[in-house]
């Protein structure tokens, strides 16, 4: 499976954010989308996640245009955006149980607790998300990387609010994912400490 982006242009309102962006991401590869604030990094990721439509151009997953097989694409993709998409009234455990059900791969309580332990959140699994810090909320969201097995990760500023230990955990997950043949499309304002990646500058 590969992600192929060809001649992609995106417009927001009257403003053309970018045009004729092309790249191809194959298994074991990762791509860092860079650019200034407002350059369209998030827009590019949302386009690749199938959340918005491009002004022109084509995105294909496994050689098939996204719009032709959205079900399979959604199954094969995990997109984590700026917002944490957590319900503040629910605990991390409940949030992750719900998300895994909606992701189509229900996780057991034991599996979720193991993942939360890896992110240093064991002991906080029953607390409402509203009492967690920004970094802890981000870690709850990133727990989904382990709970939803899928080849394509599209991550928008995943390092935001994370401490050094959590960043280390995230890198471990990235390496593991890429070793297993996964693909990673990422935006981040900080330099990414991994080698052999490609870069798309907007």
């Amino acid at each position: 499976m590969n992600l192929s982006v060809s001649n992609l242009s995106c417009q927001r309102g009257e403003r053309l954010l970018f045009e004729n962006i092309s790249f191809e991401l194959n298994p074991h590869q990762w791509c860092h989308v860079t650019g200034e604030n407002g350059a369209g990094k998030t827009s590019l990721l949302r386009l690749c996640a199938g959340l918005t439509n491009p002004l022109s151009g084509l995105i294909k997953w496994g050689g098939i245009p996204l719009k032709e097989d959205t079900d399979r694409f959604h199954q094969d993709t995990l997109y984590l955006g700026h917002a944490n998409a957590l319900k503040e009234e629910l605990s991390p455990l409940e949030n992750l149980q719900l998300m895994s059900q909606l992701d189509g791969s229900p996780a057991t309580e034991e599996a979720i607790l193991t993942v939360l332990d890896r992110w240093g959140l064991l002991g906080r699994e029953e607390l409402p998300v509203r009492v967690l810090s920004a970094g802890q909320r981000r870690r709850v969201l990133l727990s989904r990387l382990t709970l939803k097995p899928c080849p394509l990760w599209i991550l928008d500023e995943p390092f935001n609010a994370l401490d050094r230990r959590a960043i280390q955990t995230l890198y471990e997950l990235f390496n593991q994912h890429l070793e297993q043949g996964g693909l990673l499309l990422i935006t981040s304002h900080q330099a990414i400490e991994m080698t052999d990646g490609m870069s798309v500058n907007l």
């Binding site: 996640a49 959340l51 079900d71 997109y79 955006g81 917002a83 944490n84 998409a85 909606l102 189509g104």
Partner: peptide, 13 residues
């Protein structure tokens, strides 16, 4: 507002 709707729209359901 909290981004859940975006995630719901990306669900395989």
């Amino acid at each position: 507002q909290d981004g859940s709707l975006e995630q719901l729209s990306l669900s395989p359901h």
